[in-house]
Design a protein around this nucleic acid. Structure first.
Length: 932
RNA sequence: GGGCCAUUAGCUCAGUUGGUUAGAGCGCAUGCUUGAUAAGCAUGAGGUCCCUGGUUCGAACCCAGGAUGGCCCA
């Protein structure tokens, strides 16, 4: 065998690692979850940060509702929370994260009733509540597993907070007591959104708008003989005996029995029109459309008047024996209808306000199940939605119907049973937003909060500004009781703070395993909680009955700052709340209001809001439209780390698009990053703690690389601290490609592969690569938690040292930037790119000559052979100090012949035993042979 | 209908106080490499900066109106 044919490959130090190129994430991730749990990675790091005096960083978890499986929106939210906790944990902070669940409320109650095939009116409340509890716990357990599976396991997942826990319920009751004591809580009649199917009042947040077809009717409200002259006079007309009426428009004929007024716009002009032998009053802007519907020939305008002139006149109710007052209201629009708005204060929010303003009776002829009471006259006993047709027929028969058609519009529906809801006047408990300056206190509190994105402040302020009176009572079973009592003598409702606190105390005495602590309100008599001498403030009575209201679940989650942070002795306020943008109106606001009322400040220092997950075309995802992506399926296909990277690759403050081709794209980026980790691990083969070269003794190029690393790592860490995940992602991928893959790793190959294994120059390179590897691992960990940990575990345990997990590493601190070194590094990259771009011939087939200006000339000369190495050429023929112009590198075909071992073109044959090798390689091979 | 937000390359995103030829990564095409190899390198193509109008010597950027999409409301 001739020497020239000899294969020197085995004498090289080629990369070697067990870290697989193929990730197989779906298969491998579950074991990693178990590993983190088993090794108590989070708990141990948290404790260590605490012991070392790390400042707290508290992300307070907005509780997901314990019903249904995780969807991609939840994934986005949980990932962001997990990344935020991990960032601060790695940064040495005491990032104590307590996950929580929202577990009371109608959806669970309904699901349980359905499951048990029960009607809630017939169900025993204690039994129902027990079943609801089981259901809620089932969903919580399931959601918790899904969170752990996606790698979002860093938190107190074995001791989460639950709104059904005794101490949580106690805090709810105690907060109600505080609010009552401060006179924020009151009972009042309100036209509230009401579901006649669930027989309960609904919060705004429990409403969904959906398309609905309503009847659309135009109705005459006739003026009688006594009313006609006053009306006609305003239009400058005499009474010639022609029938006169005001035309109103409504899409809810069933509310007509409760009509007491007609609202006009104060600024619009109204006309009296003569058409087919009658006079009709209508807004001029809408007259054309109305008479077109009537199709009764030409309408002649006889007189006109501004709406403001008609105030407090009256017409007759179309079928009940009473008047309907003409009133003015700003909300009257001139887009649809007649400009004369049928007003029933018992059946509408604005109607109610007008009713109060004009001192109108609040009629409420509808019971909780949607049936007319005797007050509705001929319609008593009918179901309201069925009465619509009957009322229209009667109006037509009486000659009072001008026109009737159907009308498609967006209409409020119950979020749970999906049926249309109505407005109905009921006695409810309210938190008075305008009592004792609560709204102003909340508004002030907003100004002390930092918002990401910044425009969140505008949004939040508006939410406070527009916050209506907060109805907090519900007539259901699955919730925390509002511990109010009714005086049996005078029927007065009373929420006595002392009584409430007694109840709370009794609930606290229960353990979680004993079941629903608040069952006490159902099972125990009033006397069990009533303080001695409790008397009715109105009549002095001393006998009371319990009210059976539960509290709105938005109030429950709204006191989480107190039930979790305060109750567990954690810092208050929290550093951050992090939820979807819908929560400006939901949880951000409910927490703000309760905290402003009790503590006079916001419960959070900062709010981070994320956008919605939409499909790849930017449209909302729905199971029904077929663009829905199930989380478990996505994890099974791509793995959690790819999905985590997908979020980081997006700008989460806006809407986040998701689709298969998008995830394929992210998968490619993932593979890139993974391969870099793999290559680094391979290159570290053979490095031991003792052979690590201190930075100041490293080769000059390695020191430059680490200067670049420092700058990069500091930048990414700062992005992380400010939670600019996307910026961190961009910086990471760029450094990975531009600095490592295309430049430094390429330039190091010769030194790593062809040096003697333990040559100082090789150890220097490995030491730098170790630093880079460790830094990349910690910077990737918040996002690619699984992969970063996997890579870290593939590292030689001796190098891993005390850091058992990648989460035992430290987030880099920002070090002073050495601008000169960075500039030198950048220039080297640029010159290397020039060499790499030279056509046809490549790398070691070339020798190079460099022209640079001061100060680079000196810096380059100081690099010694590293300069040649950085350009990946066989020889550097010279470095010239150019007088001007851009730095350049000129390449020419290399002199010498290709060394069969290191592939550089050098003089060969110095060693007769290795004629195809250059002198250095020959010497190394001889040494290796001597060892064997 | 109102409030808030978004719209830049096939995809995800940059684009500093208005100022040369609007950038990066991924993808795509072509070539190289076969000692990171189900990898790596190089080169290249690809843009009506959503539209219309305005301000300006000059607009992706400022102003007005509109379109599309999203969230929240009505």
């Amino acid at each position: 065998m001739s020497e020239s044919a000899r294969d020197y490959r085995s004498t090289l130090n080629l990369p070697k690692t067990d870290f697989p190129m193929r990730a197989e994430l779906p298969k491998r991730e579950p074991a990693r979850v178990a590993w983190w749990t088993e090794h108590q990675t989070y708990r141990k790091r948290l404790a260590r940060n605490g012991e070392q005096g790390g400042a707290p960083y508290i992300l307070h978890d907005g509780p997901p509702y314990a019903n249904g499986d995780m969807h991609m929106g939840t994934f986005l939210n949980r990932f962001l929370k997990d990344a935020l906790v991990k960032i601060h944990l790695l940064d040495g902070r005491y990032a104590d994260f307590v996950p929580g669940w929202d577990m009371h409320g109608l959806p669970i109650e309904r699901e349980t009733l359905k499951h048990l095939k029960l009607d809630f009116r017939a169900a025993d409340p204690i039994e129902l509540r027990r079943a609801c509890r089981e259901r809620a716990l089932y969903w919580m357990g399931r959601q918790r597993e899904q969170m752990l599976r996606m790698g979002a396991s860093f938190g107190r997942f074995d001791e989460p907070y639950m709104t059904i826990a005794p101490e949580y319920e106690a805090v709810i009751v105690e907060t109600l007591a505080d609010l009552a004591e401060r006179d924020y809580l009151y009972k009042g009649l309100r036209s509230t959104l009401w579901c006649v199917y669930d027989e309960t009042a609904l919060a705004e947040a429990e409403i969904e708008y959906k398309d609905h077809t309503s009847p659309s009717v135009y109705v005459r409200f006739p003026a009688n003989a006594a009313q006609r002259p006053a009306l006609l006079e305003k239009f400058g007309l005499d009474d010639d005996g022609t029938p006169l009426s005001v035309a109103i428009w409504t899409t809810t004929p069933w509310t007509l029995p409760a009509n007491v007024a007609i609202a006009l716009s104060p600024t619009a002009t109204y006309g009296v029109y003569r058409v087919a032998g009658e006079d009709i009053i209508v807004a001029e802007a809408l007259a054309g459309a109305l008479f077109e519907r009537m199709a009764a020939g030409e309408a002649i305008l006889r007189g006109e008047a501004p709406g403001s002139d008609l105030e407090r006149l009256a017409v007759r109710h179309p079928f009940l024996d009473r008047d309907s007052l003409v009133i003015l209201a700003d909300y009257v629009e001139l887009e649809t209808g007649t400009g004369a708005v049928h007003t029933a204060p018992g059946h509408g929010e604005v109607d109610f306000e007008s009713g109060v303003q004009y001192g109108l009776p609040i009629l409420n002829p509808v019971d909780g199940a949607g049936r007319f009471t005797a007050e509705a006259g001929p319609y008593a006993g009918m179901f309201i939605f069925e009465a619509n047709a009957r009322i229209v027929d009667d109006l037509r028969a009486a000659g009072l119907l001008i026109a009737s058609e159907s009308y498609d519009h967006s209409y409020p529906h119950c979020w749970r049973c999906k049926n249309p809801v109505v407005y109905r006047a009921t006695a409810q408990w309210f938190i008075g937003m305008d009592r004792h300056g609560l709204r102003e206190r909340a508004e002030r509190a907003v100004h002390d909060v930092e918002f990401l994105p910044a425009w969140g402040e505008t949004r939040m302020s508006q939410m406070v500004e527009n916050h209506p009176e907060w109805c907090v009572s519900r007539q259901r079973a699955w919730g925390t009781p509002i511990p109010a009592v009714v005086c049996t003598a005078c029927n007065e409702s009373l929420l006595d703070p002392a009584l409430a606190r007694n109840l709370a105390q009794a609930m606290r005495a229960r353990s979680f395993d004993e079941g629903n602590a608040s069952d006490l309100w159902w099972t125990e008599p009033v006397s069990a909680f009533a303080p001695p001498g409790l008397t009715c403030p109105r009549c002095g009575g001393t006998a009371f009955e319990k009210e059976r209201n539960i509290v709105d679940i938005w109030f429950e989650s709204g006191v989480s700052w107190r039930a979790v942070l305060v109750e567990r002795g954690m810092p208050f306020p929290a550093d951050a709340y992090l939820e979807g943008g819908d929560q400006y109106r939901g949880w951000f606001r409910s927490n703000l209001v309760t905290s402003a009322a009790v503590r006079d400040r916001a419960p959070y220092k900062s709010i981070i809001a994320h956008g919605w997950v939409v499909d790849q075309h930017g449209h909302a995802m729905h199971k029904s439209t077929g663009n829905y992506m199930a989380t478990d399926e996505a994890i099974a296909k791509y793995g959690a780390d790819v999905l985590r990277l997908w979020v980081a690759s997006s700008e989460f403050t806006g809407d986040v698009r998701l689709g298969a081709n998008l995830l394929d794209n992210v998968s490619n980026v993932y593979r890139n990053l993974r391969n870099r980790l793999r290559y680094l691990l391979g290159a570290l083969d053979g490095l031991t703690p003792l052979s690590i070269v201190p930075r100041e003794e490293m080769e000059p190029l390695d020191r430059l690389a680490l200067a670049a690393l420092d700058a990069f790592a500091g930048e990414v860490a700062e992005h992380y601290r400010a939670f600019r995940l996307h910026d961190a992602y961009v910086a990471l991928t760029r450094f990975d490609i531009e600095d490592l893959s295309r430049f430094y790793l390429d330039a190091l190959k010769d030194r790593l592969y062809s040096s003697a294994p333990d040559a100082p120059r090789r150890r220097s390179a490995q030491s730098a690569l170790f630093e880079i590897f460790r830094t990349l691992c910690v910077l990737l960990a918040p996002v690619l938690s699984f992969t970063a940990e996997e890579a870290w575990q593939c590292l030689d345990p001796a190098l891993r040292g005390a850091a058992e997990s990648v989460f035992d590493l430290e987030l880099p601190t920002v070090s002073p930037i050495d601008e000169a070194q960075l500039a030198t590094w950048s220039l080297l990259k640029e010159l290397r790119a020039q060499v790499a771009a030279s056509e046809g011939i490549r790398d070691f087939q070339l020798d190079a000559t460099i022209d640079v200006q001061e100060p680079y000339y000196d810096r380059f000369v100081a690099l010694g052979d590293n300069l040649r190495e950085a350009l990946v050429v066989s020889a550097l023929r010279g470095v010239h100090a150019a007088s001007n112009g851009a730095p350049t590198v000129v390449v020419v075909p290399a002199e010498g012949e290709k060394c069969q071992r290191c592939w550089k073109y050098l003089p060969l044959g110095v060693d007769p035993h290795h004629p195809t090798l250059d002198a250095t390689c020959a010497a190394i091979v001889r040494e290796l042979e001597a060892k064997t």
